[in-house]
Design a binder for these strands. Structure first.
Lengths: 337, 337
DNA sequence: AGACTTTAGCGAAACGATTAGCTATCGGGG
DNA sequence: CCCCGATAGCTAATCGTTTCGCTAAAGTCT
């Protein structure tokens, strides 16, 4: 592989001039410029990113660490993020913490030694599991979930509104015994959505029964077993609010396996969506996140932090969910519709 | 950020000794070793990957360029690849060529300047669009699709067998007028699957009618419009073989929009799968690829090439598809079942 | 014409690690 | 008692860029 010295020698100039031509960083007479570019072309010279990184102390790499790559929600984020990162002139380094705090810790350290210029993180652990120095010296944007007490920029949705919207919809259909399958309580997303649900019910003088609120991992299997258990008892809820798209699949499967039909016997509303929803029957009624917008915004903030040295104040951007009505909910039988 | 010199000064040793301790590359007395490690800890020293890369001429980066990140099939590959890459001690740089040869060209150049140690590529263009030098000096494994005349290792499935299996199944159900919605003919995958279909029919003295074989982009929308057109005419096929999971969703939607029901009026068999298949109704009958195995194998080959300098012969690994029977096919009405 | 400013281009010092080759030091054998 | 080999650790070169500061030639003003 040809180096800048080879080019300089061949063109009869100094390496500084070659560098100037490459980066358009100083005026070079057209005569020298043409000698340099032909030399570059003939030698098929491409500058060594490693040397450049060392000198410039930049890597042009942006890391994205998501919580669960098997979840279509995060797959969708990856898709958007790749496009946005490329559009800003960076490359995307992808990590999957698989909802495991230990894995996440290793990832943070790896991101640091790779020298990524910035990272977008979907945090996995509880707030107290993070050390301050894990974020020092690297631009960070938290996406989807936030960490209490952390001073990084965040881009999230209004989880409280999401839970509230979905459950208000169920209440409007006449449901009173509403259950919920939700995620781990240490995550801001799960907690916010459940709070929204509780507030929606409280606003009408109701409250979920103790056994009707279950939490587990944000995974299909966890949701399946929890839902099977909850829906097996005779005083089962007439409607369920599921806090996550993948869990919704698990819940629907559990219901089918119990011999119940989805809108007729149990209504299901969820927050967040799954891919292939076009073919899913019945189509879920759900509150959707504007995933692409959120991801783009996260990268805009991140690149801003990377490229402007200015210590702007912390920014927290909150997106509003939108209720998408599918076919997974029905008015409560014999009740007002 | 502390450098190796700071550590050396603080520990009262030379940088060579610090390096030796870090990399376990030479014997260091336990006294010095302990001085070095405490200095490292106190200064929170982490070696600069950039400097290391420059010196070692390695980057510990593996690039993965897939054809379409919006396709769950590739999302699944990304998931597996991230895990495999991490397990081998590398990090994954992700690119999406979005089925566009021009974008792919830019990506190849970017991979090169990033100095990735190797790449896994799902090629997008026709064979003659590739230049030899685009692959020179960087370990490459082609995944899923191959490029005729290219000398890189490949990991693919037996597309011919996939088409043949799926269509044999339809034939066994008594279908005779079978159509196909398939991908671009310049891709080895589309061509192989279609050939498999044709051979399956030929083996029984049949051939698809000219208007019943349609190709388009590997996208839901393309499949939708093509299927709508094909299924609108009176001599429409009684069964369709769809060469791709995402297209199958489009075809099912087209059929529903035409007022036809899926197994009863039209049987659908496809190759390759989509995520969320657990919730999809009716579940697709399809030939599945062992995605995780294929991806792992691709990375095994790649790391092998990167780490062994030996010029082993080119390896082409072909995986066999498996037929998964769902509920999207029925015996032809009034025919032998 | 002399003094002063501009500017194209060069030389060499960084950046922070790895590593080949060298220098002491120590113990043991003749 | 001297010499030799082994070995722990150091010195300095090196990887390929970028960039600061400099030189010398050319232009501008009085």
């Amino acid at each position: 592989m040809a180096t800048i010295k080879d080019v300089a020698r061949k063109a009869g100039v100094s390496t500084a001039t070659v560098s100037a031509v490459m980066n358009d960083t100083a005026f070079v007479s057209s005569e020298l410029r043409v000698r340099v570019v032909t030399a570059i072309r003939e030698l098929r010279y491409e500058p060594s990113q490693a040397a450049r990184n060392l000198r410039r102390n930049r890597s042009q790499l942006i890391a994205l660490a998501v919580a669960d790559l098997s979840n279509p929600f995060y797959a969708r984020i990856v898709w958007s993020a790749e496009a946005a990162v490329a559009a800003w002139g960076y490359s995307l380094v992808l990590f999957n913490s698989d909802e495991k705090p230990d894995t996440e810790r290793r990832i943070l350290s790896r991101i640091r030694t790779l020298g990524c210029d910035g990272m977008v993180l979907v945090p996995v652990g509880a707030a107290n599991q993070y050390q301050q120095h894990e974020f020092e010296g690297i631009a960070t944007v938290l996406l989807g979930r936030s960490i209490e007490g952390n001073s990084a920029d965040t881009v999230t949705i209004d989880n409280h509104a999401a839970g509230r919207q979905a459950v208000d919809y169920l209440l409007d259909l006449g449901h009173r015994r509403i259950g919920s399958v939700t995620g781990p309580m240490q995550l801001s997303t799960s907690k916010g959505r459940l709070d929204g649900m509780i507030d929606a019910m409280a606003a009408r003088g109701l409250a979920p029964q103790p056994g009707h609120v279950r939490s587990g991992e944000f995974r299909e299997e966890a949701a399946y077993s929890v839902a099977r258990d909850m829906m097996g008892s005779p005083d089962r809820p007439t409607a369920i609010y599921v806090a996550n798209g993948v869990m919704a699949i698990g819940v629907m499967r559990a219901i089918a396996d119990l011999g119940l039909r989805c809108p007729q016997d149990v209504s299901i509303a969820s927050t967040d969506t799954v891919a292939g929803a076009g073919g899913l029957k019945p189509r879920l009624t759900r509150t959707e996140h504007p995933i692409a917008d959120m991801t783009n915004e996260a990268l805009r903030l991140l690149v801003d932090r990377i490229e402007e040295r200015g210590a702007e104040p912390v920014r927290n951007i909150i997106f509003q969910p939108a209720l998408i009505v599918g076919e997974s909910c029905m008015p409560l039988r014999g009740d007002a519709g």
